[in-house]
Write a protein that binds this DNA or RNA. Structure first.
Lengths: 184, 184
DNA sequence: AATAATCGTCTTCTATAGTGGACGAAAAAA
DNA sequence: TTTTTTCGTCCACTATAGAAGACGATTATT
């Protein structure tokens, strides 16, 4: 167990950036890391320091350990539940589980939204990716730009062009839903 | 979310090294990283690159993402099950869950050993730490040096001085046991 | 087509990560 | 005690991470 994580990190960073439709310049501005260095890291020509990795994962809104866990799963074919990276928003209790092995063009997320919790999502996080939301249990009010969708168990919504979105659970029980998305 | 992970990494690396009773020189030899650099990292005077972090986590036998996850939990008081770092040996299916919030002097591990699986542990990994093994379910044959212990549900074993050990599950069901250990 | 943004890469330079070896302190051995 | 070993830190030096800006290529505007 002495493999260099640099290549896996490189691939994962590029995926996360492109999934958000961000250019090198935009990620540089958000993270405080120069775009030249981001370019080198993504092309496996530099080994980022912990400080830089912390800034980049912060820009993506991910704990560094989750970013690394996603990177490590790059070559896996099967993702056991016990190995799937989970991250929880400590303030709201919102949890998000990455179900699919990473680097697949189709990604599945298992999300649990506690009762009464509101989670906004900026349009920039959705650019250039096609995605659907499928409610497994509970209720979900989904605001897409100026349009409001009221979803309940079994409903599935196809997202339109990028817009500022808000997830809200109006019910008394946690809302559990799947986010399915494709890259490019 | 822009916190620098360097300090948390520094603390965690020192804990992992001291838990194994390794000197800077020994960890340097095992990891291929100079002891001067390890000293700097542990004292928060340098930000390690991904390459160096990969070598260090490899020397500890941990995936890098798990090492980071343990580091991030440094200041937490409560460890929710969904947030507890789990790692699985892909060959044997052996899984290990870090139950306690990190940096506590008393650490609890929830281990599951599949039927028929044999896991050796070198004496060097136990030096200077006091630990017990408590079987929750299934059967566990534990070889401590030249002595063999046959444990079943509810049994608890206090480990003696450091010795080469082997965990083996002779039963047909998975063995689940707790490893409790203290530092220093 | 011509102009103007915007993209990722390349270039130059500085800060610092990383190495090998020396050093003093503390513990172990005699 | 004196000697020897082992520990972690400090020093000088090299390799490279990282920043700021220039550059050609591509795409969008007019």
């Amino acid at each position: 167990m002495e493999n260099d994580p640099v290549q896996a990190i490189a691939m994962r960073l590029k995926i996360e950036r492109e999934a958000r439709g961000w250019s090198l310049a935009e990620l540089a501005e958000r993270s405080g890391v120069s775009k030249a260095m981001i370019s080198k890291i993504e092309r496996n020509e530099a080994s980022p320091t912990a400080t830089v990795l912390g800034r980049l994962s912060g820009a993506f809104g991910l704990p560094l350990s989750v970013l690394l866990a996603l990177a490590e799963r790059a070559q896996e074919r099967v993702a056991l539940q016990a190995e799937q990276p989970v991250w929880t928003d400590p303030e709201t209790g919102y949890t998000r589980r990455a179900v699919s092995p990473a680097n697949s063009p189709l990604e599945l997320l298992d999300v649990s939204l506690p009762s009464g919790v509101r989670v906004p999502y900026p349009a920039s996080a959705f650019a250039f990716q096609h995605q659907q939301i499928w409610v497994l249990s509970g209720r979900l009010d989904f605001q897409e730009g100026t349009v409001m969708h009221h979803l309940t168990e079994g409903d599935c919504l196809l997202l339109g062009p990028p817009a500022d979105c808000v997830f809200f659970n109006p019910g008394k029980e946690p809302a559990r839903y799947v986010v399915a998305l494709t890259r490019r």
